[in-house]
Design a protein around this nucleic acid. Structure first.
Lengths: 232, 232
DNA sequence: ACTCATAATAAGTAGCTACTTATTATGTCA
DNA sequence: TGACATAATAAGTAGCTACTTATTATGAGT
């Protein structure tokens, strides 16, 4: 960085500081980008970048002509990375193992059709599989794959390669939806996860689409003690 | 937009399309920004913006001199907005109500000190409160507030105003950490949440800091059926 | 071969100009 | 007074130049 120049991150911090210090409180209107640029002696484009970042972080709200104001009701905006399960386990230093439990065809249940936003219900590939960390159940996945959108999955030997990994690598999506919730283990899930019935388990439900055609819907149920983490 | 010109979003979509179509697969190196600019007949700065966005979405990885490559192990990067609880309930069309259960002082338990990254344990403000939606328990929060970092909270009448709201508005943070996990309701929690013991509940644990001083640590336990949602 | 300085490279950043677009304010006419 | 066209405004975008920085490749000297 050239000496004396402010980077857009410096500008972001300066403006954030104004907000933290109360110079501009929730709901207050900030000066126009151009005026801030003059005050801080930098280019408007630098202020623009800084403001865009503050806007992305949910700290300010920007509207054309309306200007920039500090958000009334700040939100905590958390970014979560959900990696491939094998990767996640290996990154924790665990030994990954995978077991296919079921592979079949059929009509998905109503809940899955609703999640996929489908009215009619074509037959889909259904996969149940278990991901293990150091030999212990880690994540159980119950998946439906739309074979019209991702026909190549039919050629994959799912007893060797997990659908999780294959899809992420071979069926890129343009849109997705994720839900997190807690559920009590039923008899079967408890057995699969080597825990007791009614144990609280974290479920991560994901649906992906390629444009408007659904690719897959998966309910990933994590072992007891599983924690999803997001920083900064 | 001036006719014939490509916006950076167009460029992003064009590059994304190259990846979706397999022209560039996982691990492959993409051309330099400058060459893409020539190919698409736009400015390098436009490619830069598009690439930055693809990088933020976890689709490509960029390194100075190393160039840009398609990520080997794509991650699902989900962005969650966690609003003020009152706001969340009102946005769903529910009637918000709030009840303070306990306000006291004391040393936080070890788990809280660890989460806050503190070795010694000063006395902190402890708050237990219930947020209700249409008269039914919605979220129970168990909170510790570091009164050296946020002393003004001592002046607040917490039986009227929730610490959740006051802190979000008056104690801006520079850093935070969020954890999601499932837990079985214990006897007391079950009573508070009007559910049965051992019910699976989603817990959202949040810690915020102002620079390196912890502000607050809260465990928010949501009622059965609660779902956290993230789109796109 | 091996180390280390140097060059080359590709992304990142800052500044400028010019134009576009969404939105709000205004002022005219019925 | 109200509806509606018009002007003004502030952010958003595109293009250009120039420079910086991190990283990799190279090549000289031991």
């Amino acid at each position: 960085m050239q000496a004396g120049r402010l980077s857009w991150k410096d500008v972001r911090e300066a403006i954030h500081e104004w907000i933290l210090s109360g110079r501009y409180g929730p709901g207050d209107k900030l000066p126009r980008d151009a005026d801030i640029a003059v005050e801080l002696a930098c280019a408007r484009s630098t202020v623009q970048r800084a403001m865009q970042d503050l806007s992305d972080s949910g700290i300010v709200e920007r509207r054309r002509k309306g200007g920039t104001r500090v958000r009334q009701d700040p939100v905590v905006r958390a970014t979560l990375d959900i990696p491939i399960t094998r990767r996640e386990i290996e990154d924790r230093g665990g030994l990954y193992d995978y077991r296919l439990i079921e592979r079949s065809f059929g009509k998905p249940p109503r809940a899955v059709r609703i999640a996929m936003n489908l009215s009619d219900a074509p037959d889909m590939l259904r996969i149940e599989a278990l991901h293990l960390c150091d030999g212990r159940p880690y994540i159980f996945e119950d998946r439906w794959v739309c074979t019209t959108t991702a026909p190549n999955i039919l050629k994959v030997d799912l007893s060797r390669d997990s659908a999780n990994e294959w899809l992420v690598r071979n069926a890129p999506y343009t849109r997705f939806e994720v839900k997190f919730f807690a559920l009590n283990a039923d008899q079967r899930t408890a057995e699969l996860m080597a825990t007791t019935p009614r144990s609280a388990l974290l479920a991560i439900e994901r649906t992906t689409w390629l444009d408007d055609r659904p690719i897959t819907h998966v309910t990933a149920i994590a072992a007891p003690g599983y924690r999803l983490l997001s920083r900064s």
